[in-house]
Design a protein around this nucleic acid. Sequence first.
RNA 1: GCUCGGGUGGCGAAACCGGUAGACGCGAGGGACUUAAAAUCCCUUGGGCGCACGCCCGUGUGGGUUCGAGCCCCACCCCGAGCACCA
Length: 814
Amino acid sequence: MTDQTHESAYQPEAVEAKWAARWAERRTNEPDLDRAPRPFYNLMMFPYPSAEGLHVGNMFAFTGSDTYGRFKRLQGYDVFEPIGFDAFGIHSENYAIKLGVNPNQLIPRNIDNFRRQLRRIGGMFDWRHELSTTDPAYYKWTQWLFVQLYKAGLAYRKSAPVNWCPTCKTVLANEQVVGGRCERCDTPVEQRILEQWFFRITRYARRLLDNLERLDWSETTKTAQRNWIGRSDGARIRFPVEGGQAIDVFTTRPDTIFGATFMVLAPEHPLVDALTTPERRAEVDAYRRAVQARDIVSRKIGDREKTGVFTGGYATNPATGVPIPVWIADYVLMEYGTGAIMAVPGHDERDFEFAAKFGLPIVRVVAAEGEGPDTPLTRPYAENDGGRLVNSGRFDGLAVPEAKRRITAWLAELGVGEAAEHYRLHDWCISRQRYWGPPIPIIYCDRCGAVPVPEQDLPVLLPAIEDFRPDDSGVSPLARHEEWYFAPCPQCGARGRRETDVSDTFLDSAWYFLRYPSTEFDDRPFDPERTRKWLPVTTYIGGNEHAVLHLLYARFLTMVLHDLGRLPFEEPFTRFRAHGLIVKDGAKMSKSRGNVVVPDEYIARWGADTFRMYLMFLGPFQEGGDFRDAGINGIRRFLDRVWALVGESRRQDACGGEILRPVLVKWHQTIKKVGEDMEALSFNTAIAAMMELVNFLREHNCVDRAVVQSLVVMLAPFAPHFAEECWERLGHPTSVFDAGWPAHDPDLVVADEVEVAVQVNGKTRSRVVVPRDAAEEAVVETALRDETVRRFVDGKAIRKRIHVPNRLLNLVVG
RNA sequence: GCUCGGGUGGCGAAACCGGUAGACGCGAGGGACUUAAAAUCCCUUGGGCGCACGCCCGUGUGGGUUCGAGCCCCACCCCGAGCACCA
């Protein structure tokens, strides 16, 4: 090697351009998907290609995931790290509408920009397998999935309310309703009932919940899913009404049935008509109309003042045999439970409010310690445990949990109820009355009804239409496109009409990870061999904002495909880790707040490596943090120092021949710590440990080549271009990513002498240096020679000694 | 209201299983080099007292458990995220 006395300075721009080109040439990031001996599928959540480009939050997430993937690569895995674009959906569509540009033209431009940025930060992406959900070669299979679910009886159509703006005459997404008004024209929003497509995810509720136990996922994410699925245990009970029918209710408090003094149905409940008496008809109808005139958002989160009307009808409480009035009120939701409740005002806050407002009887059926059957209720006593039953016939005196079981059993004997579990999870509505999505592959025929488009006719292409805006027709813009709209019925050939709704973006993203390894196959959504080799995903890293919907939908679809015999596994993501959110000035970055940080300028100024490493250093990856550029200079300084060390180590080896023992220990400790931290995604502390090592080397004036080399390798996941360049300067012709992660010697991670803290009565008074693993006696002896310790101990009896080897000695005196 | 996070120097943050609080970095102050500046290098940097050895105080608040608590328990305050009449 030529001995250069004049060392050139670190020039990020040149280094990064050089290595980006070389990786592409050498195909460094393209594992052999068919033959890779140690496959590792490293997945990150694919971005939605907004017009603004990748912001710092995206960069943070991708860099973290890429850093981990590169670490795995160094450990010898064949890492497959694909990337793609989640480019359908209302965000793109709204933006296109605003600009007056068809999303067909807009999206490719955005994707180009994203691609440029993603290449610039040096992600280890396998670009051969890039995908976009808007590509017909992709959404053909999204539509195919719909057909599979339809055939399996898991896709069905039913009426459901949507938000409707009477001025814009269009359907609005929940996010477009602000304070009950249309975000564009400020008109109060109404709800409209439309026929829509649903997936029966509720059928999988229990499995989706139970499987969580055995997944290696961030606990926060699992908790969010559990809450969302929302299992509650209770009973289903039938309250007979005239005409042989019954009102079916679900309750978590069957023990309080003796206190059910009235019933409440959702205004849309199918039994309302039958129950309403002629005198009450007008009022009931008026109420139902008023409820319907409200939008979905404000009905759910609007003011809590109870409203409702009496239907005139009665049902019989099966426990007491007493007729109780049936009301309707909008606090009972048709979508939850059975759309009807038994109201127990004594023990439920909402029922209490309602009863108080309308003068309905309130009966106590649970009493706390010191209360009797007649103790008046000023508030609902909703304690789930601790109380005992009163006014409940032969169940009086039972504790609540016991009463639940006994009463449920009794109702079952009577044939009017049974134990039941219920889930908060609703079926997944996939219909969107919009343009920018994959058309739902259904043709309606007057004779045959809804008929799925045969698989060989997929994809149903989204036509490039001039006017893609939603308009006053009340249906998707696609309905105006006649030659597309009319299509022959696949079953009988008669003229049929296409479904004009497109599917939810969440459907696109619920299976993309299955597609990545198989992007080159046009005749199958995912190749069985490839799938067996690469899936389930080894590690998935993404934002907690998708902890619920996206991850749940992906799990659901995977389970369905498993049940249909198309996948050998039922959980798609073996390991999931949620990263934190990058905020700016304490608030989420958003265009409206004007606090979006564009990474491009930082990368231009500092280089990708410095920026990547800075993002990983600014806070714990799994917590995120506030973006500020104040410390970025520190990272650059650090890289400059490493650069200089590399230069020095080329000229002079070791610390004059032999590595000093303390340096050796520090080195091995660092290798150990960095490896452990990387695995735990504790990137900030891994970087800190490497900085410590560099400081240590400088203090000891040691530039040993082996030490420097291992440092370069450990740095490579964070600063890949930089590390490659250093590796080359160290004389290696191959990629640093083929160097292998350094190993530490377990015997060298503990120094020969350790500092032990000496406490007296729990207060640290001094420190003493003793040989490693010194016996307690020896440590005590050394400690008692220490002057400061003696001042606190002398003349007192040592009553107790606590010794933590190599750490601490606590002398208790008194 | 409910659920989940989180409150540690001037700032971003460390701290394994309850065992030396503040690693690492930024910023700041001082010094070296330089005609000068930048860059670089060295020293100092939680608060208070002290010439110093050292001592007292200190992890949102109040209590508790423990030889020992940032960490565990009880009560509360504040900030962030999500859910929101869920029967």
